[in-house]
Amino acid sequence: MDQGVTETAKTAPILEARGIHKSFGPKKVLRGIDLSVATADVVAIIGPNGCGKSTFLRCLNLLEHYEAGRVLLKGEVVSEGCPEEHHFTRAEQEQARLVRRHVGMVFQRFHLFPHLTVLQNVMCGPRHVLRLGEQEARGLAETMLRKVGLWEKHPCDPATLSGGQQQRAAIARALAMNPDVLLCDEVTSALDPVMTTEVLKVIRELADEGITMLVVTHDMDFARDTADRVVYMEDGVIAAQGTPEHIFDERPTPGIRRFLEHEPANGTGT
């Protein structure tokens, strides 16, 4: 089921997941996920709700811990599976923090910090993690906000922004940390079609710039037009992966056929 994997995915992976297993209590959510992502790849992850797409993303940047498997970043093992009751040492917590500095994430519900302005949101990481000075962090934040077309909103309260603007601000906040990989977890699912277009335009521009991204999406048009590779997940496993043409045109498995027959192109279905 891995036909049509692009050449870039076969060489020098920047991010690798090997044998990821994850359960929530008795419910097995991830049943051995293996995935390699090469530098500058855009990988779209699609699949029915509840198949483990978001959980997998959260395991990659250790917002969720997983029971078995490992994650490698630039060839180095950065995390390994451990039992659910494992007590994380300070060194392990610091390691998780280091992983998150290099693997950024943008969330479905934006999660901008409401007590900070848009500019302060984007400056937060550079100031407190990268330890940049005020002016330097501000300059970096300005660059990121201009990149997503949001500089004129920088002094605003995030609550006064539209959904699309908030998501663009969240993307700027993640990019300010210059991550090696950007994880996008259904970043347009909470947006109407107009705002969805706004946000996907930004993501396409980032893809054109060569930013490595894993994008969990229900927007099939985006996956077809922008992704280098599409991964189809079902019941906690990768059922198929390949080029957009292989997945959308050839529809290699019955599960993909069923899924695509019910999934509208612009991701407004469930």
Partner: peptide, 17 residues
């Protein structure tokens, strides 16, 4: 919102931060 802590962790802040 629990998402606030996760968003903070996702940009590299420690639990304490």
């Amino acid at each position: 919102d629990k998402g606030q802590r996760e968003a903070a962790l996702s940009i590299g802040l420690s639990e304490r931060q």
